[in-house]
Design a protein around this nucleic acid. Structure first.
Lengths: 232, 232
DNA sequence: AAAAACTGTGTCTCTCAGACACAGTGTACG
DNA sequence: CGTACACTGTGTCTGAGAGACACAGTTTTT
């Protein structure tokens, strides 16, 4: 393996198998999977080179033969955990049901691996799976009359919403996204009702239903639909 | 200062000034400000107890008299950096212009302190300033006929969008949010046009305008408007 | 004046990322 | 067939960083 491998090259590169020397015991996939196992169970902070190596029955330093550093390992984990975009064939062929399903599937992935949200903030390398998701959204919107910029912006907006809701839920992993925020906020508001009157009122008459994902999704897609119709 | 102080107590607590002993040299505000200075200049990773202490002319351990740990320090930094919600008096009195201004102001704050996005992922304590923002959004939507849950969901959706756009821009801090994503993706697509056709097409006919924030904001608010009108 | 409460400091431990040299292993080529 | 070479996994070391703890100095209260 070359001396310097960037995260992007790792994610995208067709790895050249070594011609001589002992067979590698590990693969990038097995390493990433080990990391994912730890992150799923104990969070991203628990993922150390040591812990990952232990899981694989190797020394910490052995990992550096495959991965240049921890950043790159996390990038691999993320791309593998989020996985490729789902098939949307069975969904009807309108752009709206497709985007709706697309967003929901993405939510499920993030929900299953809450640490992935944390791992995808800030500057990072984009993997093939992540780009695949984007491609699918772009495909769904092709032919709607939107410009390229608009198509990308729609995708970005949806991703933002999915991530936000998933994060809120994961933050306090007590069941559902909405309850999480409510519980945290309600405690703070006790005794401060005069300072946050509108907030108190809003929390008092909540429907009790957990619909944070649905709600925003519907609003965003309504907005997009309005734009598409106006264009025609 | 008590033995155990949670982040929430630190953020909200009216600190009881010590009755005896030497005057404290520092304040929570000065400590947080020092941290913010470092984070603004070199990113969140550069904020270590050592560095913050150096800036204040104290030893690392002195900080632990004020702050129980690094997590709490970052929480203080975040609440101070994002700051309280702006006055929206000069804005017209419709819910829409208010929310629009609200979201743009929030974007400006995140844009000025990109690390704050990073600092607000995962489980975290909510500070008074952050809750103030939420209160303002709730106030803007009071009287629109939306339920409490819906009001909170609208706010969450907007926050999600603002954060996403700010993050994309900050990730590659080359000017503007849209250009950042485009540049990163364009490089990857070279030679893979057959695998991501819709994406290539979308990127080819981008308008060149940087409107990621505007676009999503308009769609979301359009969607909300539709709902409000339908209710009446 | 003495006790008590509080502040800032020096030292120590623990965990983690990563550098580096080395020994073992398998392949290719003379 | 043997040897050189490429490659893998390991042990050891360093340096950064978070935090525990005991101690000395300072101010206020009794």
């Amino acid at each position: 393996m070359a001396a310097e491998v960037t995260a992007t090259e790792l994610l995208w590169g067709e790895r050249t198998a070594p011609r001589r020397g002992p067979r590698p015991t590990l693969t990038l996939e097995s390493i990433a999977a080990a990391g994912i196992g730890i992150a799923d169970a104990e969070g991203l902070a628990a993922v150390t080179m040591q812990r990952v190596a232990e899981r694989l029955g190797v020394t910490k330093m052995a990992l550096y033969r495959y991965v240049p550093g921890k950043v790159e390992l996390v990038a691999l984990m993320t791309d593998l955990a989020v996985g490729g975009p789902p098939r949307l064939d069975e969904v009807g062929d309108g752009w709206r049901p497709r985007l709706d399903a697309w967003a929901r599937r993405m939510f499920e992935r993030f929900w299953a691996h809450p640490w992935a949200i944390e791992a995808t903030v800030g500057a990072r390398a984009i993997g093939p799976n992540e780009l695949g998701w984007l491609e699918q959204a772009a495909a769904a919107l092709t032919g709607t009359g939107l410009t390229g910029s608009e198509i990308l912006d729609v995708a970005a907006t949806l991703v933002g919403h999915v991530r936000t809701v998933a994060q809120q839920g994961a933050a306090i992993s007590a069941g559902s996204p909405e309850r999480a925020m409510n519980d945290a906020v309600v405690g703070l508001l006790a005794g401060r009702e005069d300072r946050f009157p509108a907030l108190v009122a809003a929390l008092a008459d909540r429907g009790g239903e957990d619909q944070a994902l649905d709600f925003g999704l519907r609003r965003i897609l309504d907005g997009v639909e309005l734009l598409i119709d106006r264009r025609r």
